[in-house]
């Protein structure tokens, strides 16, 4: 196990290197520079700006300079926000987005797994259709839609929850629900499918035949294996939650990193694009690794073996 993890971390280095390098050059190919504005700027001013941010150097020099600094943890100054460094902005934005992502995942798992498991117990009956239909609404309602809708209902009509911001726990309910709901639908579908697969297998029947209660069968045996597809999905889902938090952060006026990530691309804030991209690739590598490790844990036969031994 440890060897496996170390190997995966070693493999992450070339991934990061390729991502950083590709991004570094791609952003420079994209038309429009960080200092282009609607009003014409004199050649002298443009020159001064480029000199200030090292952009007057040949591209390969810029690249090696950047890599040298990045390895030491210095992601450079933001081009859009003159007084800020990328490292500093990441430090303030990341914890917020991370918190949002975690709550969203909790919502997604809570709603998704519940709906999926309930539905799988009695396929093709009302007990299947109702929770599945409910959870699927999450997909039809993308965050741009669900966010404002939730705010209208809970924030403006009932006045139960604040319409924007990220301070108290009341502030955190609607945004995390908004961000999580799309994933809830996926999880519901995947867990229903996985559960059906497992519940139809012989070892479950064996377990039932041995007189285990239905609850024990579902919770002790079926769920671990049945949630396999969900577990493969969680890795990319968490990464997606974090990098896809832009809409939710914008709708709820939250000071997270998702906004920087998207706005930096439109602003051609080269260093900020690179910084956030590197950050997200680290997280993708990490969460995919985590989900692979969990896949081992969830292997149904492994579980069956141990429980048989216990009896």
């Amino acid at each position: 196990m440890l060897k496996f993890i170390i190997k995966r971390f070693a493999a992450a280095i070339p991934v990061l290197l390729v991502v950083t390098t590709l991004t570094f050059f791609l952003v420079r190919i994209a038309p429009g520079g960080p200092f282009d504005t609607e009003k014409a700027v004199s050649a002298e001013v443009m020159q001064a700006l480029k000199r200030r941010y090292n952009l007057d150097q040949p591209v390969y020099v810029q690249y090696f300079d950047y890599m040298k600094n990045a390895i030491q943890g210095d992601l450079g100054p933001s081009f859009k926000y003159p007084g800020r460094t990328v490292t500093e902005m990441v430090k303030t934005g990341l914890p917020v987005t991370f918190e949002l992502g975690v709550y969203a995942m909790i919502w997604a798992l809570l709603i998704g797994v519940t709906a999926g498991v309930v539905a799988s117990l009695r396929p093709n009956t009302a007990q299947d259709y109702v929770p599945m239909t409910m959870s699927m609404i999450g997909i039809c309602l993308p965050s741009v839609l669900l966010g404002p809708l939730l705010v209208l209902v809970f924030g403006l009509w009932f006045e139960w929850l604040p319409v924007s911001g990220w301070d108290s726990w009341q502030h955190k309910i609607l945004p995390s629900l908004t961000l999580g709901s799309g994933y809830a639908a996926y999880i519901a579908r995947l867990s229903r499918g996985g559960m059906l697969e497992i519940l139809s297998q012989d070892f479950i029947r064996t377990a039932r035949a041995k007189g285990l209660s239905n609850t024990a069968v579902v919770f002790k045996h079926a769920m671990r294996g049945g949630l396999g597809p969900v577990i493969s999905f969680i890795g990319p889902a968490i990464a997606g939650l974090l990098s896809g938090s832009f809409v939710t952060e914008t709708v709820f006026q939250i000071q997270g990193i998702g906004r920087f990530y998207v706005q930096a691309a439109f602003n051609r804030d080269y260093t900020m694009i690179l910084g956030t991209t590197v950050l997200f690739s680290v997280m993708i590598v990490f969460f995919n690794l985590l989900s692979d490790i969990m896949a081992v844990w969830a292997n149904p036969r492994l579980k069956f073996e141990t429980s048989k031994g216990a009896r």
Binding site: V15, V19, L22, T23, V27, A30, A265, I273, F280
Partner: peptide, 25 residues
């Protein structure tokens, strides 16, 4: 498998909007 999955990781990580802007241009 290791190599192929790391390629997938790389694709996940690339900034999507920049990719779209480049395709468009």
């Amino acid at each position: 498998d290791m190599l192929m999955m790391r390629i997938v990781d790389t694709l996940y990580a690339l900034p999507f909007i920049i990719f779209v802007i480049l395709l468009m241009v």
